[in-house]
Each structure stands twice: as structure tokens, then as C-alpha cells.
Design a protein around this nucleic acid. Structure first.
Lengths: 251, 251
DNA sequence: GGGGTATTATGAATGCGATTCAAAAAATGA
DNA sequence: TCATTTTTTGAATCGCATTCATAATACCCC
């Protein structure tokens, strides 16, 4: 019965409408101001209908995150499928991550919020699984590049699995995003352009792993060159860049 | 007038009572279940009195965080004041951080929660400043060790400031704490004993910085030995350790 | 000590918004 | 066309943070 199928399509479309609308609300007024009733009304549905899709407000937040995360996947794929030396690919992955964050300014903070116990627990089991599933390819992208490096002889795994070898990179990116969000902390310590530091630190770490070819992480020119090359080759369409090679205005 | 002074002391004591009670509530029932009225009642005060100390529920959360953070300072001081080679000291700082987290299981997640825009914005300016101030010595401890390393000739700063050189370590610790809290992510990826990996990754990073003496991060025995030494020398009193050298039960 | 003023504590009332659910509307199927 | 099932609706409910008029207490001067 085609009716059934059509109905499912309509439901999915409505769900996406709710998600997009809620995301727009967050982007203009902040997480704090998100009102379930307002989301429903703005979509021309009753509050109850919204609750037919999402078990709770928190459930909706997880859904928004999972949805945005999917857009991220496409960007990561560019890095993994790029035909370049492994060490360039891993740098490209991180540059992509940073650019995505810059272009989706609420995504990181939403991510941090939903993984909070208080929020996580208030979402439905299915939704949580959906978020975890959306995360997996993320991690797979990184490990696949690490695997490439091992296969190409650029990296000696020393008995560790690619997933384990990737953990440090993952943690560092995540931590840096956190620090950037809590920017009062960084600025009060006069630390500027943190994402530049992320890239340097990743290179330091990769050097520590003896991931070939080794690079001087404090060679500004080489770093700029690599970043520019990556942005031009893979990320032309992502406009705003917090990695720009110029000095910040004045500090 | 001594009256004034006594009054201030009493107020401070009451504030701490509120903070401790609220923390206890969080530890037993979770953040989600924290009720302002219940905190007040359990302290034998009226709700309004609680609000004389804290501008909002969020304000109280920041206060709890700042208070717990102070306990952390004492632990960090042990590392900074330890008479040992710089690279051992920085390892000790991180071991201390991990042990503290393990002994105060809600502290990291509370930290992540309060730095969320939604929560941060709902706290008073003074309270935010208090949290930032409580954070500062944290960072100072790390940079002071880095400075020691430079002074001792263990580390060539290559024109970077100690604060900048410390940023990567900070980010990595933070990120790993985040990953550990969202443990469904790690376990679904079969990554176990993440804090061991934190230590290995820190060593990788320090090797990348060429921080002397270089160490083989995959030398399990050496790592165990160092950690045991640090725990015995500095952290005898912190019981629970997620860094224990035994293998985990079975996985 | 007494009384007048200022400060602090109280907890019932308020308000906001998430969530529910009985009733209405729409879809389905005979 | 009508009975039955499914979906939608939005007003009513409920929980809890926050407020604020009133009561209690502290302070000060005589």
C-alpha cells in the first residue's frame, strides 16, 4: 500500500521541519530561549503534534544534533577520500572539523550540552542510539586515515589499534572546541587564535607518534601553505575561516 | 564593630552549607533532580534565604563548581611543589587531575554543564568571575611547570610562551574527560581505560615538543612504574584510581 | 530596658513553560 | 454513507524557579 509509504515520507518531512525550525530558533535566540510551543506554532502545528515526534525537549535537542552532524559527514568524507599523503589527510580532517564548527557556531556547544547527563538521560533510548550512530562514521573517518598511514608505511602502530592511535587527536580537538566555547577563559589568559594552536599541537602529537613525514610545528610558513592548499582544494565553499593566515586585527 | 565581622562569617558559613548540601543532592540524585526548595528546606532555611546567596539555580551550580575546584588546587600544588624532573612533574599534575576527577565523579560533568552558554548566562557576573578566578591557578600550575622545564633546559620554547606550550596538554585532558563522561561513545567503540591513553598521549605530545628526557610512550612497564611512584609519593590519600596497573577484569 | 528604625527571613503566591489528554477532526474501509 | 481507527488539537495540568508582602529579628539611641 503506497499510502503507508507516503505517510512515512510526510512524517519524516515534518520531523525535519521541526528540527530545522528549532535550530533556527536556537541560532537566533540561543538554547535558553527555545520554547516547544513556539516551535510548534511556527511550523503551524499544535504542541501535541511536536510531542508525537520528540519525547521531550531534550529529545528534540539530540535530534537537532544528529541532523547537523550528518552535514559534517559530507565534509569529512572530502578529507578521507582525498588522494594525498596520510599526514596531509589527517590535517585536512581537522581543518574540516574546525571550518565546520565555524560555519555551524552552535553545533559544538549543543554537542557539549546534549552529552550532559541531565540532557542525555531525558532523551529517548532510540534518539540516543541515533546520536551514537551519527557519531560512529566520524570516528571511522579518522581511524581509516590512520589505517591508510599504517598501510602506506608512514606510521608504525607499535602494536596499537588505529582507533587507539586516533584517540589523542580526537580528545585534543574536542578539548580545544570546549576551550574555545568558554572563551572568557582563553581571553583572560591572553591566548589568541586557539585553532592555530590546535593545528600546531596536532603536528607535535603526530611527530611524537613518528608519523612520517615529520614536520616542524613552528614553521609558520609551511603550516600556512598546507592550510591554504587544503582549503583551496577541499573546502572552497566553506566561507568563514578562523584559521586565516593573516594576523588578528590587533592584540 | 565585631558584630559586622561575625555576621560576615556566619553568612559565609551558611553559603558553604548551601553549597555542600546542594552538592550532596547532586551526588545522590543527579543534576536533573536538584530542587532549590529542597536544598533550602534540608538546610532549615526558607527558599528566599537561599536566593539571598545565589541569584539563580545556575548561580548555585557555578558556586558549587568553584568550591570543588578549590579542593583541586591543593592537589595540584603537590605536583608543582614536588622536587622532581620537570617531565615527571607534568605527568604528576595530570595524574593528580585524573585522580581528582575519579574521586569527585560529578565535578567534570558539572564543569562541562556550567560552561554551557545556557547555564553560564544565567549566573551572576560576580559568580562567573569567581569561577574564572578559581580556574586561573589551575592554568598557572601547568605553566609554572613548563617554565621550570625551560629554565632547567629540558624544553626549548622555540619562541612560544609557556602558556601557549601548555595549551595542548590542557585541551587533551579536557577532551579526554569529555569522552570519558560520554562513555557510551567510548564503550561502543571498544576503547577501554581511556585515562591510560591520556598518559600515553601526553608523552607522545611531550616527545613531539622534544621535552627532555624523551620517553617511549608504549613502554608499559616504565609508565606503570612512574605512575606508581607518583601515586605513592604524592597521592597516597586519594583512594580510587582509574589508572591502576592491573588489566581490567575482562573485556 | 524600651521603642523606633533598618535589615533579614519567611513561605505562600506568581508565573512560566513543558507535558498531557480528552475531545474534535481526519482518514480509512466497508 | 457511516462506523471505526488514527491523528491532531490546544486548553488544562503540573512542577518548580523565582518573587515579594509580611513577619521576625537585629541594631541603635535615649
Amino acid at each position: 500500500m503506497g499510502t503507508k509509504r507516503r505517510r512515512l515520507r510526510e512524517l519524516a518531512a515534518r520531523e525535519q521541519l521541526f528540527i530545522n525550525t528549532a535550530l533556527a530558533h536556537i541560532q537566533t535566540d540561543g538554547l535558553l530561549a527555545l520554547k516547544m510551543a513556539k516551535v510548534a506554532r511556527d511550523c503551524d502545528y499544535a504542541t501535541g503534534t511536536l510531542y508525537q515526534h520528540f519525547a521531550s525537549k531534550e529529545d528534540l535537542l539530540l535530534a537537532i544534533f544528529a541532523s547537523e552532524n550528518e552535514k559534517n559527514l559530507e565534509i569529512m568524507r572530502r578529507a578521507t577520500e582525498w588522494d594525498a599523503p596520510s599526514r596531509k589527510k589527517i590535517l585536512a580532517l581537522i581543518v574540516g572539523d574546525v571550518l565546520f564548527s565555524a560555519n555551524h557556531p552552535d553545533h559544538q556547544s549543543l554537542g557539549r550540552y546534549i552529552f550532559t547527563d541531565a540532557v542525555w538521560e531525558a532523551a529517548s533510548l532510540e534518539r540516543r542510539q541515533q546520536v551514537l550512530d551519527a557519531y560512529m562514521p566520524h570516528h571511522e573517518a579518522a581511524t581509516s586515515i590512520t589505517q591508510d598511514a599504517i598501510n602506506a608505511g608512514d606510521l608504525d602502530p607499535r602494536g596499537q589499534s588505529p582507533a587507539e592511535l586516533t584517540l589523542g587527536i580526537w580528545a585534543m580537538c574536542m578539548g580545544m572546541h570546549t576551550l574555545v566555547e568558554a572563551d572568557e577563559v582563553l581571553t583572560s589568559l591572553k591566548l589568541v587564535r586557539p585553532y592555530r594552536w590546535l593545528l600546531r599541537n596536532i603536528h607535535l602529537y603526530l611527530n611524537g607518534l613518528n608519523w612520517q613525514p615529520l614536520l616542524d610545528p613552528f614553521d609558520e610558513q609551511k603550516l600556512n601553505q598546507d592550510v591554504e592548499h587544503i582549503v583551496e582544494t577541499l573546502y572552497q565553499d566553506l566561507c568563514f575561516s578562523p584559521l586565516s593566515t593573516e594576523e588578528p586585527p590587533h592584540e
